[in-house]
């Protein structure tokens, strides 16, 4: 970006904060720092794609996680137009439904659909009904005509908690409930990390393409590395210094939580570098093992959470 260009930063955001945001996004996407300028330039001229945010069998934890990062929200909400989000929108009842239908019709193939929560398929889908329609029929209609669908959180990815054994409602993630979608980005995690949600959208706005993903549709920038390998306590693992009981001397010293059931060795996520709550900390840093929330079927495969993984 040339110096002559005037940078019109988003409304209500200082220039400094905006550039910090762009630097942070470049870092999250594992891009060289010079890309921050390109991101800044793209964000100040990008068209605002409409977003339809669908909530099904969810706890709103992903939305909450998203809304707890004011800097990201200030910038991002200037870049997209959230036309439908049950927990945030002003209209209710059929006027809310109208907002969704209008956007889906007017911007067919141009809007981004974000899905939070699992989609129940048992008993003809009656376990999640919105405006008299099943979650499944809404998901089919909205996702099929979207530019891209982003499944935020583990529930939208593989069914998550509602799909945990014995899966009483026949809950499925988006990829199983609405198969064959053109572009489906999965951002598992319980909740999904707001930095990864934001960086995924910023990647599209900057490069006009979605980030590279693995075979499960998870962006490589966020789910490429094992938590264990990137963990700040990894050296203690190598030195076989383990916490053996809550509150013991090793726990006080911040030693490895492997023997307390940490699932870091089987979980791929960028938690150790991106962290949570504006980069404050992540579970292992706070003294609790990873529960493997970004892995498939973790409520069944990673439990009991406090049982150590087998030594390899």
């Amino acid at each position: 970006m040339s110096n002559e260009q005037i940078l019109t930063v988003p409304h209500g955001v200082s220039r400094r904060k905006f550039l910090q945001f762009c630097g942070l996004m470049a870092a999250t996407l594992a891009l060289p720092t010079e890309y921050a300028g390109r991101i800044a330039s793209a964000l100040t001229s990008a068209v605002r794609p409409p977003v339809i945010w669908l909530e099904f069998q969810d706890c709103t934890g992903d939305s909450e996680s998203f809304l707890r990062e004011p800097t990201l929200i200030d910038v991002l909400l200037d870049q997209v137009s959230v036309d439908y989000h049950e927990t945030l929108m002003a209209p209710a009842g059929r006027l809310a439904e109208k907002s969704r239908l209008d956007t889906a019709q007017k911007y067919k193939g141009q809007y981004v659909c974000i899905v939070e929560g699992a989609i129940p398929t048992g008993s003809n889908g009656v376990y999640a009904m919105i405006g008299g329609r099943t979650a499944l029929s809404i998901a089919q209609e909205v996702c099929d005509n979207a530019l891209a669908t982003i499944a935020v959180g583990t529930c939208a990815w593989d069914g998550g908690l509602p799909a945990a054994n014995p899966n009483p409602t026949g809950a499925l993630g988006v990829r199983a409930a609405v198969p064959g979608l053109g572009t489906l980005i999965n951002l598992p995690g319980c909740p999904a990390n707001v930095y990864n949600i934001t960086a995924t959208i910023v990647h599209y706005l900057t490069f006009n393409q979605w980030p590279a993903t693995d075979s499960q549709g998870r962006p490589l920038f966020a789910y490429g590395d094992e938590i264990h390998e990137e963990c700040e306590r990894h050296d203690y693992y190598e030195e076989e210094r383990f916490v053996l009981a809550w509150g013991d001397e090793g726990h006080k010293q911040g030693w490895c939580l492997f023997k307390m059931g940490c699932k870091g060795p089987q979980t791929k996520s960028n938690c150790p570098s991106v962290k949570w709550n504006s980069g404050t900390n992540f579970p292992i840093g706070a003294g609790h093992g990873c529960i493997g929330c970004a892995t498939s079927k973790f409520w069944d495969r990673m439990t009991p959470f406090y049982r150590a993984l087998p030594d390899d």
């Binding site: 069998q57 376990y127 908690l161 509602p162 054994n165 409520w299 439990t303």
Partner: peptide
């Protein structure tokens, strides 16, 4: 209008895990 059946999911699990399920 939404039901997940977490009470059913919790049955038979390690009680130390319950808070992580119920918290959701």
């Amino acid at each position: 209008m939404m039901f997940r059946g977490l009470e059913i999911v919790l049955k038979g699990r390690d009680p130390r895990d319950a808070w992580l399920f119920a918290q959701r």
